[in-house]
């Protein structure tokens, strides 16, 4: 396997990992709750890309049966990720509702300020 084939064969996975780590970094290093949720979404999409990359077949087409086509990509990861996207937006909505409630109670959505208010109580 040449260098070019090696890079193209693994490029999708590497970018997916890079995006996942960017999302993880936002979640653990940033204190703003909305930014944390955006980071969570970035992480989530990177996992979707990893799964869909594993489903791709060279020379294949979308898994919709048609005459004269023999090679299809793997439909099962597509089904999994379809479910994951919809569940993902449901959890995001719940997270954002919590953020709005926290803002209502504490007057801030910065993690450090919330902690210092909790300690001074």
């Amino acid at each position: 396997m040449g260098d070019w084939e090696f890079i193209v064969g693994h490029y999708n996975y590497w970018i997916a990992i890079f995006l996942a780590m960017t999302g993880l970094y936002i979640v653990i290093a940033r204190g703003n709750l909305i930014k944390k949720l955006v980071g969570l979404n970035v992480f989530q999409s990177s996992v979707f890309i990893l799964y869909i990359s594993l489903a791709k077949v060279e020379g294949g087409t979308a898994p919709i049966l048609a005459r004269g086509i023999d090679i299809y990509s793997n439909p099962l990861p597509h089904v999994l990720i379809l479910t994951a996207i919809v569940v993902g937006v449901a959890t995001t909505a719940l997270g954002l509702a919590l953020v709005v409630r926290i803002r209502g109670e504490y007057g801030t959505i910065e993690e450090d300020d919330i902690h210092s208010q909790d300690e001074s109580m």
Binding site: I52, P77, H78, I85, V89
Partner: peptide, 21 residues
Amino acid sequence: MDAVDVAFTEAAVGAGISTML
């Protein structure tokens, strides 16, 4: 990557509804 069903769900739900929320 041939995942057309996933693509339009992501465009509608990920880019649309999530951004609105």
